[in-house]
Design a protein around this nucleic acid. Sequence first.
DNA 1: GCCTAACCGAGACGGTACGTCCGGTCTTTTT
DNA 2: AAAAAGACCGGACGTACCGTCTCGGTTAGGC
Lengths: 222, 222, 222, 222
Amino acid sequence: MDATATGSPDHGTGTPTDAPGGPATRGRPRDPGRDAAILDAAVDVLAEVGYAALTMDAVALRARAGKATVYRRWASKDELVLDAVRRLEHQQVPVDPLPDTGSLRGDLLALFRPEPAEETARRDRAAAGLVSVLSHRPELAGAAHRSLVGPWAHAHRTVMARAVARGEVDPGADVGILAQVLPTMAAYRALVQRAPFDEAFLLAVVDGVLLPALRPPAAPPR
Amino acid sequence: MDATATGSPDHGTGTPTDAPGGPATRGRPRDPGRDAAILDAAVDVLAEVGYAALTMDAVALRARAGKATVYRRWASKDELVLDAVRRLEHQQVPVDPLPDTGSLRGDLLALFRPEPAEETARRDRAAAGLVSVLSHRPELAGAAHRSLVGPWAHAHRTVMARAVARGEVDPGADVGILAQVLPTMAAYRALVQRAPFDEAFLLAVVDGVLLPALRPPAAPPR
Amino acid sequence: MDATATGSPDHGTGTPTDAPGGPATRGRPRDPGRDAAILDAAVDVLAEVGYAALTMDAVALRARAGKATVYRRWASKDELVLDAVRRLEHQQVPVDPLPDTGSLRGDLLALFRPEPAEETARRDRAAAGLVSVLSHRPELAGAAHRSLVGPWAHAHRTVMARAVARGEVDPGADVGILAQVLPTMAAYRALVQRAPFDEAFLLAVVDGVLLPALRPPAAPPR
Amino acid sequence: MDATATGSPDHGTGTPTDAPGGPATRGRPRDPGRDAAILDAAVDVLAEVGYAALTMDAVALRARAGKATVYRRWASKDELVLDAVRRLEHQQVPVDPLPDTGSLRGDLLALFRPEPAEETARRDRAAAGLVSVLSHRPELAGAAHRSLVGPWAHAHRTVMARAVARGEVDPGADVGILAQVLPTMAAYRALVQRAPFDEAFLLAVVDGVLLPALRPPAAPPR
DNA sequence: GCCTAACCGAGACGGTACGTCCGGTCTTTTT
DNA sequence: AAAAAGACCGGACGTACCGTCTCGGTTAGGC
C-alpha cells in the first residue's frame, strides 16, 4: 500500500498468483538497472528545467529508455517526480550516525551539515518539483511530509530525549512538538519561501526557540 | 518591473498625461470591469477544480470573455492564477483589530479565529493553486511568503512585544524568530502537509513551544 | 439589389427617412475619399499576400482607416475583396471604344490588348482572391461571372453581329454561345488554371474554334 | 518534392531497405488505415459544410483521430482538403469505356452521362473546396486543372480523331483546341459560375460551336 | 537447445490545453 | 454623425505533452 501510495517503482515480483508454490516468474525479468537510470535522468531533468518543463519524453530520452519502460514502473509523471525528489532528499539526511557531542546545543548544530552550493541548487529545483506534485496530488502530501521532515524530526526527538535523560533539559518539555519545529520551519523555507537554510537561521531557531523552551524550569537556589 | 514580476494586469499604456503634446489615450480604453470579472472567474474555477484542471477556456467562458481579453491582461495561466490567489489571500486580513485579552496566552489563542468551513475549503483549494504557481515561477516565492505569513508574523510580534512591556515574559527573548514559529508551521501545514490547522495543534505549539520559550527566567519556586 | 448582392459600397445617401421633403442629411457626411483609399489598400494587400493572408486589419492599417470605417461600407471581407477584384478587372476591359477593323478576325484580335507584365501579376493574385470569395459565398458567383465575362461576351456578341450584318459569316450561327467561348476559356485560364492568357492561346481559339464555326456554309459555286 | 507539392500524406522515412546497414524502420509504424479514415472524414465534412466551415477538429473527431495524427500526415488544412478533393475527383473516371455511337454528335452527347443527383451535390461541394484550395495555394493550380479537365479533354480528342478518320469532319480542324472547349467551359460553369451543367448548355456548345467548327469545308448545296 | 512470455527502444496514437490570430462588433475621443 | 483607434467575443489554428498501444527485436526462464 505504501509503495503504491508513494509512487515507488512497482517491482513486479508480486504477480497475481503470489501464493506459495507458484511464483512462476515467466518471461524476461525487469532490468533493475533501468530503475536507477530513469530516476537519475528524472533528477537531472528536474534540476535543469524544473517541474513545469519536465516532460516524460525528455526523461525517457535522457535515460535512453522507451516511454513504456518508464510507465511500467511509475504510473504517472507525478509519481516519478515524487520518487526523484525523494532520492535527492534521502541521500543527505545525515542522521544515520547520530551525532553525540555531549550537549544538546552541540547535537542540534551538528545535525546541520552544510552542503556544497551545487547541491543546494539541485535541491532547490527538486523542491519546486515536489511542491508541484503535491498541488496535483494532495493525497501524496502525507507521504511526502513523512519522508521529508520525518527523519529529521525523529533525529531531533532522539537528541532531545538524550538531553532529557542527561538531566540537561526540562523533563516536562513537550518533545513531540519541539522536535518538529526546526524541521518544519526548514522545510517551509526550502519548499515555499525559497530562502537559503543558512547557519544564521539555524542559530536563531536553536538559541531563540528550542533551547529557551527546553531549559530547566529555574534552578531551586534563587 | 512590478507588474511583470507579480503578474498583475498590465493596464494600458501610461497615464492620460503621458508627455507634453503626447497622443493621449486613443482608441477604446480597457474595460476595468473585465479585470474583476476574469479574476473572479479564475478564483471560482480554481476553487472548484483546482490548479491542475483549471483551463483558460473555462475561465474565459465563465467570465463571458474572449481568450484574447484574458491574454491581453495576463501573459499566461500562471500569472492569472497567481493574481487570483493573491486576491483570495488579500481579502482576508487576519487580524484587523488586534485582540487584547490581558495575557499572552489569551492573545495568541484569540489570534486564531475559526472561520466558516466553507471559507476554509475555499482557502485550501487556493493554497493548492498558490503552491503550484510557486513551482512554476520560483521567483515569486518571496512575495507569496510575505503575503501569506507576513501579516500573521507581524501580529504575533506585536502581541509578544506587549507581553514583554507588561513584564509578563522574558525581556531577552528573541521575539523576531519566535513570532515566526506559529505562522510558519501553520503555513507549512496548509500548503505542504495538507493537515487541518486545528485547535490541538495550536495548543501544542503555544503551550509546548512559545510560552516555554518566553517564560521569565526566574520563575518563583513552584 | 445589385449593390447589395455584389458588395459594392453602400453609399449612405439613403437614410431611413428618404421620403420626399425630408432628405435631412444630418451629421457628418461620409468622406467619399475613404472608399477609394480602402479599395486601393485592399487591392494592394490582395496583390501582395493573396486572399488567404489578407486581413481586414491590414487593409484598414494601410488605408489609415479604422475597421469600423471599412465595415460601414462593406459588410464582410468577401464583399470587400469582391469589389477590389472588380476594380482590378474593370479598369482594363478595352471594349469602351469597340474596335472596328473591318474584318471579324481583326476585331476579335484587337479586343485583346497585351498588358504590362506587372499588371498581369497583380491580376493573378486578384484572381486567386476572387476564386476564394466564390468558394465562401456561392451566391456571389453569378454577379462575379456577369461582371467578369459579361462585358467581354457582350463585346464579342457585338463584333459577331456586325460580321453577320456584313454578310461575312454564317447568318445562322449561334452567336449567343459563340460569344461566350473565348471570354469563358480566358476566365478559366486566369482563375483556375493560372496559365498565361497569351497570344498563342488567343490565336488558337480564334482560328481553330470561332472562325471555323462562323464561316459561311460553303459557297454555292463549287 | 512531389509529396510536398501535392500534399499527399508523408509516409514514413524511406523504404525498408534504406541503406546497407541502415537502421531500418524503428518504432511503431504508421497505421495506413488512419490515412483513409481521415481522408474519408475530410471528404464527408467538406461535402456537408463546405471548405470555409471545415474544421480540423471536426475532421479529427469524425475520424476518431487525434489532431496530432492528422498533422503528422498533412501539414495544414489546405493540404488535407486538397487531398480530399483529389480523392473525390479521382474516383470518378468519366469515360472508361469510350462511347462509340457511329456519329461525332452521338459520341459527344454520350460522353455526358447524367449522374445521380446525390453524387452531383457531393461533387459540387467538393468543387467549392477545390477552388478554395487553389486560392490558398496557386502553385497547385496546374495539377488540379490536369486532374479535372485533362481526362475529359483527352476523351474529346479521341472521339474527334475518330470522326476525322471516318471522314466525317474537316481533317484540317484544330482538334487540339476544340477538344478543350467543352471541358473547359463545363469546368468554368461548375467551379466559378456555379450554374448547372445541364443538357441545354451541352447541346448549345455541341451544336453551336463544336459541330459547326468541325463540319467539312465543302458541304453539298443545301 | 528450443519455446515462450515478458521485457526493451522507438514512436504512433487519442485526447486535451495552450497561446496566437482573425472576423465582425462595440466603445472611446476627436473632428 | 463620421472618423481613427483599439478593446471586445467567439472560435479555429497548429503545437506540445500525457498516458496508452503497437511495432521489431532481445533476453531470460521452463521444457
